[in-house]
């Protein structure tokens, strides 16, 4: 089974090399003479007067957490889709598997409707 993932490994290695090699080459081949002005943060010619990190609005967090929850829902859907044909040989199991997943999605749709009705999805 793992042979199928060999291209992925090659891809990861090439990706890492693509990112790292130019930086390493620059570091190794180029002259390296830092001074105070060179290493200071460059901000359009101004003196940097505060940290670049600033506080985010909590609304981003809300969007991100709703995204995670539905992402998890998709993660649950995937093995179900992969197995659906096989476990549904008999009619009873077929109905069970189908209803089961729709109950699952239905419960989450309640959450979706709640978030929507509350206006959590509006950006304002």
């Amino acid at each position: 089974m793992l042979e199928n993932y060999f291209p992925v490994l090659v891809f990861v290695i090439v990706g890492l090399a693509f990112g790292c090699v130019p930086l390493l080459l620059g570091r190794l081949l180029g002259p390296h003479r830092p001074d105070r002005e060179k290493t200071s943060a460059y901000e359009c010619g101004f003196e940097a007067f505060e940290e670049a990190r600033m506080q985010f609005d909590i609304r981003y967090y809300l969007i991100a957490i709703i995204f995670i929850l539905f992402d998890l829902e998709i993660a649950f859907l995937f093995p179900w889709a992969a197995i659906f044909k096989e476990i549904t040989e008999s009619p009873a199991v077929r109905t069970f598997g189908f209803v089961e997943m729709f109950v699952f999605i239905g419960i989450l749709v309640v959450g979706y409707a709640y978030a929507w009705a509350k206006g959590a999805l509006d950006w304002e």
Binding site: I66, V103, F104
Partner: peptide
């Protein structure tokens, strides 16, 4: 598996209640 969806539902509602304000 169905309980997992209820837990996800609780998480959605908790997130909306805690962070959403008009």
């Amino acid at each position: 598996f169905e309980l997992a969806s209820v837990i996800l539902l609780v998480a959605i509602i908790a997130a909306v209640v805690l962070t959403h304000r008009e």
